[in-house]
Amino acid sequence: MPASSAGALAALRRSEDRLARANRSSALAAESGAFARALGSMAASAAQQAAQLAPATGER
């Protein structure tokens, strides 16, 4: 865990980005359409969290 709050927020943002990518990848590979929809929505949610954290980490 990073010592500074800025470092922790940046790490959290990277984590949300990774989660979004993983969920998108899983959605793409899903055999079930319903499951793909759920995973795609979860990817979008993680993307929202990453975007929300961007100003706090000085990124866009």
Partner: peptide
Amino acid sequence: AAVRELSFGGSPTEFPGA
């Protein structure tokens, strides 16, 4: 679209679009 909604003042949701 989910991220763009935030740029118009929206809040993150658990299942955007669903």
